[in-house]
Amino acid sequence: MYKVYGDYHSGNCYKVKLMLHLLGLESKWVAVDILKGETQTADFLAMNPNGKIPVLQFEDGSCLWESNAILNFLADGSAYLPSEPRLRTQVLQWQFFEQYSHEPYVAVARVIQRFQGMPAARLEEYQVCQVRGHKALKVMEQQLQRTPYLVGEHYSIADIALYAYTHVADEGGFDLTAYPAVRAWLARVAGHPGHVGMLD
């Protein structure tokens, strides 16, 4: 059985929760409170020296961190990670996009608006997040107008990676009205057998 160290409100942690649920794998959730500094304790840093969640711990005590690395590990050999090299590389392409062009803006805007109450000191950063987050959503919209999922016809960990923060983008002030293909994709993902919500 795996242990997952994380926060239910975190999109990065939700990726792991959703993947485990889709695969029907048993796991134990260990709640970690970032605001209380629990990712900076000696015990936690022994698991992940980068001091971030999520962390996937194996039965032998060894650990894997970085949400998309965990997704790739869990999905290996399943229908959620294509074996064909070109398709597998496209999955990675979207995961890199998520970490560099999507999450830093959509997720950060959510933190500033929902969890910090829009402090004046972060207003300029929030406005930058809005511009760059909408740019990322437009990229997704273009792809999803062509294919039902981000990598063609099949649901993959590329979709899981980007669903995590896109489905709560409104909590960061992003209106998805202008993205009909993204909204249809969100509904497809949520309707997939085995789906579990962020706070379920």
Rank of each mutant, 00 (worst) to 15 (best):
C63T: 12
V189P: 00
A109Y: 04
G172T: 07
T177Y: 10
S62K: 10
F96E: 06
I53A: 04
T177W: 10
Q93N: 14
Y105V: 05
V91T: 00
M140H: 04
V128L: 14
A187E: 15
A178T: 09
Q113R: 15
E141R: 10
D159G: 04
L74A: 02
A79L: 12
R132P: 01
D170N: 14
L71R: 02
Y126D: 04
P180C: 12
S101F: 14
Y149H: 00
W65T: 09
T177R: 13
N68K: 06
L81Y: 00
E171T: 08
G117A: 08
D159M: 03
N68R: 08
I70Y: 00
D175R: 09
G173S: 09
S156G: 00
E125H: 13
V182N: 04
L56Y: 00
G172Q: 01
P104W: 06
Q145Y: 12
A190I: 07
G191R: 08
L123R: 15
A164T: 05
P119W: 07
K135S: 11
A69H: 06
L56G: 00
V151F: 03
A109K: 05
S101L: 13
A120P: 07
Y163G: 03
P54Y: 05
P85Y: 08
A161H: 02
H167D: 07
S62P: 00
S101A: 15
A158F: 04
A107L: 13
A136K: 01
S83P: 09
F96Q: 09
F174H: 07
D175F: 06
V182C: 08
L74N: 01
P104E: 06
Y100C: 12
I112D: 02
D76A: 12
C63Q: 03
W65V: 08
S156F: 01
Q90E: 14
P54I: 07
Q99P: 01
L162I: 05
V55G: 02
D175L: 09
E98G: 09
E125P: 07
Q95I: 08
V128R: 14
P104D: 09
G172D: 03
I70T: 03
S83F: 07
G77T: 03
E153V: 01
A79F: 06
Q145C: 15
A187Q: 15
V111F: 14
F97L: 06
Q99N: 11
L92S: 15
V91C: 05
Q116I: 10
T147A: 13
E141S: 08
E98D: 14
A69D: 04
N68S: 09
T177P: 08
M118I: 10
L74I: 03
G61M: 06
Y100Q: 13
W185P: 01
R183T: 15
W94Y: 10
C129E: 02
V139P: 04
Y179H: 08
A161I: 05
L87Y: 00
G77Y: 05
Q142T: 15
P180A: 10
A107R: 12
Y155V: 09
S67H: 02
Q130H: 10
V151Y: 03
G191I: 08
V189N: 07
A120F: 08
L137R: 01
L71E: 03
Y179Q: 05
A169R: 04
A158D: 03
A164N: 03
F97D: 01
L137W: 02
F73R: 15
K138F: 10
L176E: 06
L71D: 01
E171R: 12
